[in-house]
Design a protein around this nucleic acid. Sequence first.
DNA 1: TAGAAAGTGTCATAAAGTGGAGGATTGTGT
DNA 2: ACACAATCCTCCACTTTATGACACTTTCTA
Lengths: 147, 147
Amino acid sequence: MSFFTSEYECKLDAKGRLVLPAKIKGNLPEASGNELVLRRGFEPCLILYPMVEFKKIYSKISGLNEFNEEYRKLQRNFFKGIATVELDGTGRFLIPKLMTNYAQLQKEAIVVGMGNRIEIWNPEQYDKYLINDPGEFSALAQKYLDA
Amino acid sequence: MSFFTSEYECKLDAKGRLVLPAKIKGNLPEASGNELVLRRGFEPCLILYPMVEFKKIYSKISGLNEFNEEYRKLQRNFFKGIATVELDGTGRFLIPKLMTNYAQLQKEAIVVGMGNRIEIWNPEQYDKYLINDPGEFSALAQKYLDA
DNA sequence: TAGAAAGTGTCATAAAGTGGAGGATTGTGT
DNA sequence: ACACAATCCTCCACTTTATGACACTTTCTA
C-alpha cells in the first residue's frame, strides 16, 4: 500500500529531469521497480503513479469495450496523456517536453504526496488551486471526514 | 486507546528536532512502533498522531475516488499538510522545515496532550488561542458537557 | 555528413538529516 | 536530606540527500 504525503519544493535540472525527494522515493513499492507512470492531470499538473498503482486504473479503462464509441473517446483522451518513465540510478526521471509544457514547469516544481500517487505542479499554479480560505477547507474536511 | 494529557514546555535542537516528553512517549501505543504522523492544524499549530490513530483518518480520505474533482481538492489540501516522522532511539523526531515555518516554531515549543493526539505550538501563539476568561471557559463547558 | 539538440550517466561538493554519548537537571523513594 | 534513577539537553561525528557541473551518447536537422 503506497503512502505518499507532504509537499516538497524540487528543482528540475537543465535537461528537465526531476529528482524525487528521498521521502517519496523511500515509499515507492518494491514491486514497481523503477517504473513509474506519468499522467496529465485534470488540473494543470502532472500525476505520477508507481506502476502497481497505475495498473489498477489501467485495468479499469482498458476493460471498457472498444466497440463502444464513448468508451473509445475516453480511452483515446486518457491514453494520450500517459507516459511511462524510469528512475535512473540517482533517483531522477526525465519529464517529456510536452508534459513540462502542459504543466508549465520551469526550474521549480512542487511535489505533493497524495496517498497512492504524486502530483507535480508549477508553484504559481499550485497556489491558485489550493484552498486559501481555512473555513472552506475545514468545511470540506468536515463534510467528507466527519465520523 | 491513546490517552495524552497535560502541557509541556519543550525545546527544539539546532536541527529542528523535538524530544517528546517522557509522559507522552510512555503513552504511545505499541502497535505504532516509532511511527508518527504530523499534520498542520487548522490553527497555527502542528498535530501529532500515533500511526494507528492516523490510519483511521487515512483510510477515509484515501478511499475517496481520484476522478472526482472535489475529492481531489480535499485530498490535495489534506495531504500537503501531512508528514510521517519517526522517533529515533532517544525519543526525538525531526519536524520538517515547512512545518516549523507553518507553526512558527523556533527554540521553544508547547506540547499539549489532547487525548488521542498531541498538539505542538509556538508559545506566544498558544497563549493567543487559549481562553483567558474563566467565565467563557465555564460557559463553554456547560454548553457542551452539561449532562 | 557535420553540427546542434536532447537524453543519459557519473562525480564532487555542500547542505541536511541521523544517531549516539556525556553531563546537567529533575524527580522519586527511602 | 540523601542517593539513585530517569529525563532532558547539548554537542559532535557520521551518513544521506540535494544540486550543479561535466562529459558522453543518441537523435534530429540542415
